[in-house]
Each structure stands twice: as C-alpha cells, then as structure tokens.
Simulated scan of single mutants.
Amino acid sequence: MSTTGIGILLVVSLALQSSSSVVEVSYDANAIIINGERKIIMSGAIHYPRSTPEMWPDLIQEAKEGGLDAIETYIFWDKHEPVLLKYDFSGNLELIKFFKLIQEAGLYAVMRIGPYVCAEWNYGGFPLWLHNMPGIQLRKDNTVYKNEMQIFTTKVVNLCKEAKLFAPQGGPIIMAQKENEYRDVAGRYGEAGKSYIKWAAQMAVGQNIGVPWIMCKYNEAPQPMINTCNGFYCDNFTPNNPKSPKMFTENWLGWFQKWGERAPHRTAGDVSFSVARFVEKGGVFNNYYMYHGGTSFGRTSGDPYIMTSYDYDAPLDEYGNVNQSKWGHLRDLHAAIKSGEKIITSGIRTEKKYDEWVY
C-alpha cells in the first residue's frame, strides 16, 4: 500500500474514533434520550469539596455498583474564587479530575453551576467579596451581580470545554443546572426576579454546551429550561411544558443534622416507594440528595448550628462506607426498574383503577 493510502486510512480511522465518542443528549416527555437510546437515569449527589480526592474513586465505584447511571454535584463559587478573579481548582476543588474519574467509571455527570447552591453551605456558595461589591443585589435583575455571575459561569463552562467534558465532546456531562430552588425567593423579588431568571436562562443557553439545562424547584422556569422537582416525594409533579421529561433533581434521602438534635433517618423502604411511585407516574430522572454527603470542612457549614458532618443518612456514609440496608435496597430497586426501562420509556401506558398501570 502506498504512503498516501496509509495516510488516508489513518485520517478515516481517527475520524471514526472521534465520531464514536460524541454523545448526543435529548429528551421527550417519556425519556432521557442518549445516542438514540431511551433511558431512565438514576443519579446520586456527591459533592467533591465534601470529600478528598483520595476518596473519589471508591465513592464513584460504590455508586456505580449501587446501580447509578450518573453522579451529580454543585459547583461551589466561594471555594473556586475566594478572592475576586483569583481562582482555585486544586486539591479537593479539582472538579475536572472529579468529572474525569466519573467518566472513567463509565458513568454520566450532572453539573449544577447555580452559582447560588444553598446546600447547607456557607452563604449558599456565594463568595463574601460578592456581598461587598457596591450597588449589588443578589439573585435579581442587577447589572453588578449578573456580570459577576456570568463571568464565573463562563469560567467553569470554558474549563469543562477545554477538558472536553460535555457529552457532545465525548465527555460525561449530560445536563447542567442554572440557578437553584428559586421558588423560595421569587415572591419577595417580584418583577426583578422574573426578569433576572429570564436573563439567566438566556445566558445559560448562550454558553453553547450542547446538553439540556434544568432549573429545579421553580415552576415558572422559562423555555428551554426544564423545570424539575425537589422533595421527599415528586410523583405528583408535572413539568410546565408537556414535552419536557419529569425529573426529580433532589430526592432527599435524609436531612442535615444540627447540634443537639437526633441524627435524621429516612427508611430504605420509604425512599424506594418514592422512586417507584415517581417512575410509575412517568418520572425518567431521579437524583438522590445525597448519595454521599461527606463533611463540610473548615467553616463551610451554612448555619451556626449545622454540624460539620453532612452524612445525610445517605447510602454511603460520611466516611464513604456502605450504609445498609439503604444502599442494597436501592441497588435492587434500580435493577428492577432497568429491567422494564424500554417499555416504561415507550410512552405506551393504559391507566387502570387503583393507580395501577398496564404496559
């Protein structure tokens, strides 16, 4: 074979390898669709700053063995930009490494930029220098705030693009979130809140990441944002667009603990019921909050009385150990749901009395 022929074969081979790594993410009312396959996604929250890099591989592997398809995390603005325009992505803030480990394990990722995250985190994840900027009004249609929010969002997105972490680049990130639980403050912010949210949605879409954007716990989320549900039960939740998938972005597996209070506990049976009921009524994305809670190191706890332990009665405890029976019970539930995934996501359902379904 000639040198020219070998060169052509090499180019074709590289092109095929490149195209095979591209992941297309879409959706309809009955499924999350990944490369044409209709899926129910089981996800779990693991916050990278609440553990150590040495723990990440084991946490991710335990999540995979527990039947999860994806790992979800917030992005913590105050830790990444402790001083204006001075960034830190080292140590347990090395989010690129965290996402790459997720991909190496064969899992997807969901990135919740916020950048307000709540998360029982100091100042909701806002850096304190932001509070002190002249003329600023947080989470409103305010030029000073929007400028800083866009700068940080773009910084994170560009880092992920450079590392080829978004699904269309062959990376693990299949969804991203902008803002967080805005319903809790929308009433007091009025029109300045509505116009801000509209801007935030447009700004997010303008980042051109190639995967769907979501807004949790805010029924007025503008298109093309997918509005989603947080809580203990979300089976009765209905998206504000009939073409959107029904998503449960925070299925609370326990709760945070305050000093002097009993450790919160939610039974494995109750969690399983909430998931099964959600899927029965059309749910196609369930994210456990938290799958591993970990530890709020330093002064990151968001309230004077919230403990540094963020165990959350999660399937993986504060130290990364398997919490039985919750971990195993949910693993078996995931397997049962996956066995009927193709039928469940087909959209063909016939309602019967007693809320049973025939497929």
Rank of each mutant, 00 (worst) to 15 (best):
Y305Q: 12
D311Q: 01
T153W: 09
E220P: 02
M175I: 08
K140P: 04
L107M: 15
Y310I: 06
C234H: 06
N180M: 05
M133I: 04
W357S: 03
G298R: 14
Y305E: 12
S19D: 12
K164R: 13
P168H: 03
L130T: 01
P57S: 11
D313V: 02
A63W: 06
L93S: 09
R349M: 12
F99W: 14
Y196K: 04
G340N: 10
S272T: 05
T345V: 11
T228K: 02
V157L: 03
M175Q: 11
P168L: 05
S272H: 02
V284I: 12
F297N: 02
F232D: 13
V22F: 01
L333A: 04
I32R: 05
N142F: 04
I75K: 00
T300P: 00
K97N: 15
Q169A: 12
I96Q: 05
W327G: 09
M307N: 12
D332M: 09
I102K: 05
V22N: 01
W259I: 13
Y27C: 02
R112Q: 11
G171D: 14
D303R: 01
Y354E: 15
H265N: 07
Y288A: 07
Q202H: 10
K155V: 01
K258L: 03
V205K: 10
W255D: 15
H47T: 07
I136A: 03
Y108Q: 08
A263D: 08
R139H: 06
G44P: 13
V322Q: 04
F285E: 00
I306N: 04
L128R: 11
G36H: 09
P222L: 11
G282R: 12
D332W: 00
N321I: 00
Y123N: 14
N240L: 07
W129I: 06
A276C: 07
Q207N: 11
Y289P: 13
T249A: 08
S19Q: 13
G190N: 14
E179W: 10
K164P: 00
H47N: 15
V211H: 02
E351L: 10
Y305D: 14
G170L: 07
P212E: 10
F297D: 01
W129S: 06
M247T: 09
I197P: 02
G302W: 11
Q103C: 01
E179Q: 14
V23R: 06
Y196N: 04
N122Q: 11
K161C: 06
V25D: 00
F278T: 01
G5V: 08
I337T: 08
K79V: 03
R139W: 03
E280P: 04
D88E: 14
S301H: 13
E62C: 05
A268D: 14
P224Y: 11
F152K: 02
I343A: 08
S2N: 15
M307P: 03
Y312A: 04
I174P: 03
M307A: 11
G91L: 09
A186D: 09
H80C: 14
Q177F: 12
K146V: 00
